[in-house]
Design a protein around this nucleic acid. Structure first.
Lengths: 301, 301
DNA sequence: AAACAATGCAATCATTATGATTGCATCTAA
DNA sequence: TTAGATGCAATCATAATGATTGCATTGTTT
């Protein structure tokens, strides 16, 4: 039966590949609505994609061809309902699903966002400026430097040239990883602290590019366990899907300290840094030797 | 000139509204690529949407009709380049943009995710099970209760019936806001702690629904300032886009403590709770009287 | 200098997808 | 029993798309 299910799945994928992009989007919408709302009607499809009646009916027919056991029409409610045998015909990533549930199905750009009244993503307190992000992204993509104004916590506003290679969300804010020509080293720059960003037309030197960013290239193994002082470690083990009471993750050394801070991991050797909200402890503290900005993490002497 | 630009914008929106959904998606892709990468070619469009050559050429023609000053064809690079006068013809939300930059342009379901090598969203350590999310979401959408197994930190694994009304990301994990029939009150349940979820066919009582969830319905005004012990408050004020050195946000009382915890806001009255990573202080501590689960926030006696 | 290759374009024609209309089926409400 | 609102299939018209041809522009190879 496992073999037969895999065969059917392959045939479904083959048929999906033969469809146009627009058709595929509409079938994904039907599949998504059935799975997460339990029902879907022609009017839902028409409302979302602005198609005609006939096209919607054909879309449902196509979906029924692909997965006849997934849905059943109930004239009482005038809509299709998800069956108990439902098997999604699209692959799902939990974060992508939750994004779609909170913002609405779609890319969020063509037709904007439709905020949900039932699913709410995390509250964001920091909103980078789109024009700044766009300038930085174009510099990264075209391997260029930028001349910018920047307000740092330590030295106020300065002007400098940097060569950015990545934009990263550290859990609280978005920052740029870049080579700083002022300090001749790779550093992080918070996106909201740029006062202006102008692309530089000149060349970028090899040592200013990401392959020479040692902390960026270094991958470290982080091992996390439920904090030893927690009485019910099983709930924590479930949360983090731990195996043998442990979660191992590979992170770039440049990013690791931010992750430890965001998740409030106790990094002290004797696990003495237990404070409010702390559920995890670092099981391999020797790894902190590989992380230059480790002082950002909790529990570092 | 401001008036004339608004008139042009209205005309662009009118023309966009006349296009089919698929056409709009492709124009959004062109616009997005120009803004964030600085250039786009026919092959990019074909690769992303699997269209034919002629359709791509027509798409570029349509885009040029709408925004002739946005792009210019350079035969040397055989692609279109963003001009200095570029004005996006689609509205942008920073978070949506950053999601698209990190996961690729699209809904992430029809054709999956294309992880970027230049833009990285926050590392997630907790991944809810899609089947559990789907069951809970169907219960919420159809106003039903669920019978579930749940592993709590305090009492281990129990079986209970709940009536969920919302799914919320508290900054670290996704949880369900639901009426707990076991304790006869509204509570939060971490999504990764469910062992099973079955929908209940029976009725839901009025007092079990979200209008009776007082903490959910109560909106509280949170006022945040840079922590008084920070020497360079200007960078912090820029980060949080503060006005007059202050950021005011409206949050549901049920969610507020999580936000204060995630952002490590010092809630102590005398601002004595300054620890690593703390940049903000609560300017109106009297608000904590309205928040039942305020003990989750830092600095509460 | 000429030929080739790879992008771009427009025009034309064929194919496919979509939209409108008509007639019918199912269910609920009046 | 009738009306209304969903669903369907079939038919025909329209719009979007795909393939092909010829041309323009630029860089590379011969």
């Amino acid at each position: 039966m496992e073999y037969q299910n895999n065969l059917i799945e392959t045939q479904i994928n083959k048929k999906l590949a033969e469809l146009t992009h627009a058709q595929k989007d509409r079938l994904a919408f039907i599949d998504f609505s059935l799975q997460f709302f339990g029902h879907v009607a022609r009017t839902d499809l028409i409302q979302r994609f602005k198609t005609g009646l006939a096209a919607s009916t054909r879309d449902f027919s196509t979906y029924k061809e692909l997965a006849p056991d997934n849905l059943i029409l109930r004239h009482q409610t005038k809509s299709y309902h998800r069956t108990d045998d439902f098997q999604s015909i699209f692959k799902h990533d939990p974060e992508v699903i939750l994004t779609s549930l909170s913002r609405g199905f779609g890319n969020g750009i063509s037709t904007g966002v439709q905020p949900s009244e039932q699913c709410f993503d995390a509250v964001r307190l920091i909103h980078p400026n789109v024009a700044i992000i766009a300038s930085i992204m174009r510099a990264i993509h075209n391997k260029q430097g930028v001349k910018c104004g920047y307000v740092s916590v330590s030295s106020g506003e300065t002007e400098r040239a940097i060569v950015p290679h990545s934009i990263v969300n550290n859990g609280h804010r978005w920052h740029v990883r870049a080579y700083d020509r002022k300090h001749n080293s790779f550093r992080d720059f918070v996106c909201t602290r740029f006062t202006y960003v102008d692309l530089i037309q000149g060349p970028v030197h090899v040592h200013e590019a990401s392959p020479y960013d040692q902390q960026w290239q270094q991958i470290v193994d982080i091992e996390l366990v439920p904090h030893p002082k927690i009485k019910q470690p099983r709930a924590i083990e479930m949360d983090y899907n731990m195996s043998d009471g442990k979660l191992s993750i590979q992170l770039r050394a440049a990013v690791a300290a931010y992750v430890l801070r965001q998740w409030q991991v106790d990094c002290s050797v004797d696990h003495s840094e237990l404070h409010l909200g702390c559920q995890l402890a670092l099981a391999n503290p020797e790894v902190i030797k590989l992380i230059e900005n480790i002082s950002l993490a909790p529990g570092i002497a």
